[in-house]
């Protein structure tokens, strides 16, 4: 058997998969995709909880500076994708690449360093309720940088001013309104000037005016930096406002529907039912 290429004994499917992997490895090493730097890539990612397969071998690519909005029915796995990107959960199978690095192959310290380049706004804010508004923003700076206390406070005050919370610095999170809590969550997520920002339903439970203000704030902050945004929302107006690219997560699949006009004319009954909010259709049958 010596000298014989083992590839000769592989099936066509296996060979195709190997070629696919090799191509992706080369692209990852170059750190490019379609002329733009690829920041996040899902390669046949599946996630199973018990007997339920929530994500079924999905492929997804998000480029640098892009704003991607994830839409889809409740429980379809949108927030799960954010948790997979942020490393809070691991995929059951498949690989997730952040800046060309496979999360699975990274050591604990490498993962921590990588995740410092990300910020996340949680659906229910996840603010530190025993810390003041200012200390919530100071926390990541204090724990992960060598900055002096003076510098840390200066940065925290800057971000809190940016989100319009400079008048409640010494309040505790439960002493401010829901909209203010969202803004505080955004300020905390931005404190480390992350390269990737994940927003999990940033307008959930807010009135339309506050909701609009939050999205404007997110867009203004994006314009002032060059971050890549991944946002989960089910409010289509906000999705259109935020998205360079919309991805619908449904039935374990990730359907890339494109920008606002492309999404509106996308030829998939499930997408059309969802964006139009129709009661009857394939999504209702799925439930």
């Amino acid at each position: 058997m010596q000298g014989v290429d083992p590839g000769l004994f592989l099936s066509k499917k296996c060979l195709r998969e190997r070629l696919h992997d090799r191509k992706n490895r080369i692209l990852d090493n170059l750190g490019i995709f379609g002329g733009m730097k690829k920041v996040i890539r899902f390669d046949r990612v599946s996630k199973v909880f018990g007997n339920e397969k929530v994500l079924n071998s999905i492929d997804l690519e998000i480029k640098s500076g892009e704003s991607v909005v994830l839409i889809g029915p409740s429980g379809s796995g949108k927030s799960l994708i954010l948790k997979l990107i942020s490393g809070l959960l691991n995929p059951t199978s498949g690989s997730i690449y952040i800046n060309g690095k496979d999360l699975e192959t990274l050591s604990h310290d490498e993962r921590i360093l990588l995740f410092r380049s990300m910020g996340m706004l949680f659906q229910k804010n996840a603010l530190f309720d025993s810390l003041t508004v200012k200390d919530n923003v100071c926390f990541p700076l204090r724990e992960t940088t060598d900055k002096s206390q003076f510098e840390i406070e200066e940065i925290a005050e800057y971000f809190l001013k940016e989100v319009g919370l400079d008048h409640v610095l010494d309040h505790f999170p439960d002493e401010i309104s829901g909209g203010m809590q969202k803004r505080l969550g955004i300020a905390r997520a931005l404190a480390l000037a992350p390269e990737i920002i994940l927003y999990d339903d940033p307008t959930a439970g807010l009135d339309p005016i506050t909701s609009r203000k939050i999205v404007d704030l997110i867009l203004n902050l994006k314009d002032s930096g060059s971050s890549t945004l991944v946002t989960v929302t089910n409010e289509m107006n906000r999705a259109y406002q935020l998205a360079d690219k919309i991805v619908m997560i449904v039935d374990g699949e990730a359907i890339v529907t494109g920008n606002e006009s492309e999404t509106k004319s996308f030829q998939d009954k499930r997408v059309q039912q969802f964006i139009k909010g129709q009661v009857d259709g394939p999504l209702t049958d799925l439930q």
Partner: peptide, 18 residues
């Protein structure tokens, strides 16, 4: 349950240490 520990992890800190 209020995801504060997840938030610590997401902010690049180690909840076990913090």
């Amino acid at each position: 349950v209020t995801e504060q520990i997840d938030a610590i992890r997401c902010l690049g800190a180690n909840p076990m240490k913090e």
